[in-house]
Design a protein around this nucleic acid. Structure first.
Lengths: 182, 182
DNA sequence: CGGCAGTGGTTGTCGGTACAACTATTCGCT
DNA sequence: AGCGAATAGTTGTACCGACAACCACTGCCG
């Protein structure tokens, strides 16, 4: 319990300890925190309202829709959605109950499970996509100038370097899942 | 249910419907989504591990620590944390159980409640701050060049324009809460 | 070919958030 | 005054995600 002067707000103390945030960094951070708090909620509620899907569910289905044969191993899907296997397992079970996805044992590796996007699942993503993309546009890109899009890409790449221990962001390099090779 | 060619991934179809994302926007968006997914988790787990606090709880306490007399009305606090009153009410109750915050009826407006940061609460934020700031640095700012910090600020401001229906980001302009004026 | 570490997934439980009622106080209007 | 509308918070429920324990299969190594 440091006995610092209690009349001074925590976050604006002098950098006696090295490495407090600079004024410019603080200004940026406050805004980043707001975006982290508000943007997921906005995306979630639009998708919920218009498609009955979570933001996470939507991206899961979208990932599957892009995969060869619309099939991906659970671990590859977890990787591709920046998620964990336990979380994914729960979500996929719910989606399976709704008929949007089905789980098949992976031929060639008895441990693995393949997730397959059903026709109903495909229809659901296709139906949800236009409005979702519209939301992303109106919430994010409409306010940005072209140069800022590139800046944003570079900034996120820099952040993901320390955050994304694997190369999750890098496309699914043909990690096709219908074969045993995995 | 559009009957689009099922062999084409949803997200790379031609812009027959206006307003699909451009290639550059898509590149940016994929990264933004990853950050939205990974960063909160990283911040949460560091704070949980080192201070027993949620990211949200930490920011709530930090906001209170910056307020005059360390007091804020619930609605002002909800506003300042980009949150809702129901959520805040639950969180504050838990923090009150832990002795970090106390709730007092607001003199002058019988409907309102003032949240007050206790000494224990102050100590908790002060103790948690250095490591949390270190985490923010290492996760976000260490990878950025000075120019990118300003870019990030501008980009978030643009996004928050459509997201932040009120001027939440703008500092608590002396919305002091110990008086009835609110 | 038999044990054993490592990999791939699933399940159980708990904490946290959203959403929808519901209560209590204040404000506006006549 | 006094009634209705609006404001400020709280509570209840249901769902989602984190974490830890657990099971099943594979692959290696003697």
């Amino acid at each position: 319990m440091p006995a610092d002067d209690p009349s001074t707000p925590v976050s604006s103390r002098e950098p006696r300890e090295p490495r407090w945030l600079s004024t410019a960094e603080r200004a940026a951070w406050i805004r980043v925190v707001s975006v982290l708090e508000l943007l997921p909620g906005a995306l979630d509620s639009q998708l919920r309202r218009d498609a009955g899907l979570t933001f996470f569910e939507y991206y899961l289905l979208a990932r599957l829709s892009e995969a060869p044969n619309r099939v991906l191993r659970m671990s590859a899907l977890a990787h591709g959605t920046n998620s964990t296997l336990p979380r994914l397992s729960h979500v996929v079970r719910r989606l399976e109950d709704r008929g949007l996805v089905e789980r098949l044992p992976c031929p060639g590796d008895g441990r693995a499970t393949n997730a397959h996007l059903t026709d109903a699942g495909w229809d659901a993503v296709v139906a949800a996509a236009p409005e979702h993309v519209g939301e992303v546009r109106s919430r994010v890109f409409d306010g940005l100038e072209p140069g800022q899009v590139a800046q944003l890409t570079a900034i996120c790449d820099a952040v993901l370097t320390t955050l994304d221990t694997e190369g999750r962001t890098k496309a699914f390099d043909g990690l096709g899942a219908d074969g045993p090779t995995g």
